[in-house]
Design a protein around this nucleic acid. Sequence first.
DNA 1: AACGTTCTCGGTAACGTTACCGAAAGTCGA
DNA 2: TCGACTTTCGGTAACGTTACCGAGAACGTT
Lengths: 337, 337
Amino acid sequence: MVTIKDIAKQLGISVSTVSRALNNHSDIKKETKLKVLETVKKLNYRPNSIARSLIHQRTFTVGLMIPDITDPFFSTIAVGAQELLSEQGYQVIIGNTLRDKDKEKHFIDSAIERKMDGLIVTPDHLDEELIELLANLSIPVVFLRRKPPKKLKLPYVDVNHYKGACEAVEHIISLGHRKIGYLGMPLESQIAIDRFQGYKDTLQKYDIPYIKDFIKLTGGRTIQSGRETMDQFIPKLPQMTALFAYNDLLAIGALESLAHHHIRVPEEISIMGFDDLEISSLYWIQLSTMSQPRNQMGRYAAETILKMMNPSVTNEIPEYIILDSTLVQRNTCTHVV
Amino acid sequence: MVTIKDIAKQLGISVSTVSRALNNHSDIKKETKLKVLETVKKLNYRPNSIARSLIHQRTFTVGLMIPDITDPFFSTIAVGAQELLSEQGYQVIIGNTLRDKDKEKHFIDSAIERKMDGLIVTPDHLDEELIELLANLSIPVVFLRRKPPKKLKLPYVDVNHYKGACEAVEHIISLGHRKIGYLGMPLESQIAIDRFQGYKDTLQKYDIPYIKDFIKLTGGRTIQSGRETMDQFIPKLPQMTALFAYNDLLAIGALESLAHHHIRVPEEISIMGFDDLEISSLYWIQLSTMSQPRNQMGRYAAETILKMMNPSVTNEIPEYIILDSTLVQRNTCTHVV
DNA sequence: AACGTTCTCGGTAACGTTACCGAAAGTCGA
DNA sequence: TCGACTTTCGGTAACGTTACCGAGAACGTT
């Protein structure tokens, strides 16, 4: 490998002079600087950022821990974060955890040992061990899509799931529906709780009775599980005129089930999703849904971590950034007949 | 930051002894080793892999350059590569180029400066400059989804696009079709050339005349552009009984267009795709297609780069790995009436 | 008791780079 | 021509770690 020493030797000058030439210091003659740059090209020298990192105690890398890059939801967030960070010279290291606890822990370990400058995380398994790990971290951390436990006192970026659910249900109600079901996830995550609460509170706000038979919770977060759960819904269907799903995947699963049972959407039942995935705008689906600003979430998380990594008086670090989701009206939600 | 020095100081021993304790060397007393490990825990010491890299001249990082992580096609490849590499202690750094030439160049630059141990690339803009850059690289490089130019002499992993196209068209023919159109990409990439050639050669093999009007090439690789191009096809449609599309996105665009024009698939026309995306198995689409072993491609690329990074006599480095695609029969391809 | 062997440890240099300090050379005005 | 200042450079130490060599202690053998 060609190093700064080789250049110094070649020109008969010292390494410190070469270093200064390469880093645009002022105390160097223009002539020698040019000679150095010339030799750099000739020898195809490339600075070793490893050595640089060791001195500066900065690696210009940021870790981004997400559950699944295969999921367009998260990859879009990742792209948003990456765009901003790479503009600032940071390398983004994606940790794909597949919602596996050991992988989450392993990634944070690796972030410590590789001396990343910051960390953006969407942890799934936030148990005592992981909290302890994050608490002892000496680098900035931003939470994404999850409020950090009080103990941690870290900034976070999320959308207002509660408000989004309220608006979704409110829209359904504004179309005249009164018998509105909910197809959701078990109340194990805060997001699931918030969206369900939004559903319930909005019903109450409009004096619509809460009917337990209109609620069905699924196991997985896949189209398949949405479909299977909807199959169980079908018998009670005549009473229901609209259904609010926890997310687009479940909604699409429901659409599959309904199509399979020859129940017309939206004529016989209206369906509302949450997320606005790419596939939701497909010709055959055209799902009405709440769109989340995914790319922006990534960007805001990046912006926050940048502020934390480069502290200055003028840069206030926000406690949290809560974004709004927006209603996207397509073809699965219409006036009750 | 707590370093190896702090541990040495705390115990009144030398840093080299601590280092040997941490690296399982034999010339150390069990007693002192235990004391060291104890202090490591007490002080929450973490080895600094940056410093380690500097000495060992290895960073245990591998760069993975892909056009778009948002595309499930590439993210699945990435996951496959990541699985294998992280098992071996490597960190994967994903470079999302968005098919932008500057970003490709920038990522390779960054790979050099950060002293990555290896590189897996799917370059889009393989011009002289980029070839030169790759040629001067002192680290192993594996090409993915693209044959490297002769000048480079690097191993590559790909599927046999020609053979896949042949099998697809052969399957269509076996269903009795003789009037088979092609909806493709401009012949700018090798993949586009191979698939088109497979289409043409198979027609010839079965003495089916090649009709120019049955060929339409699109601009983009999106559903949208597939749809728009299909709209132009519609007038000539009565003569055609089947259509082979360059990939699933174009095929789905075609399905949209056909649905919009109330032309029934597969009753009036059969459609065949290539790639087997997740959405192709959706209830409303059920696209017959050629499935590419995406995860495996990533794994093989990882396996190859691992062999190159850890040379030994027993490990032969393959010149190339060509995988087969497999026919997935769904509902868009049926017997001609 | 003297010897060779094994076990255990410390000191030093090195990886590639930059910060810092001091010194030599050049410049300028009086 | 002299001092003061500026310009330009080199040497050294440091970042955190490991490889290498040599030395002392402990041990057993004759």
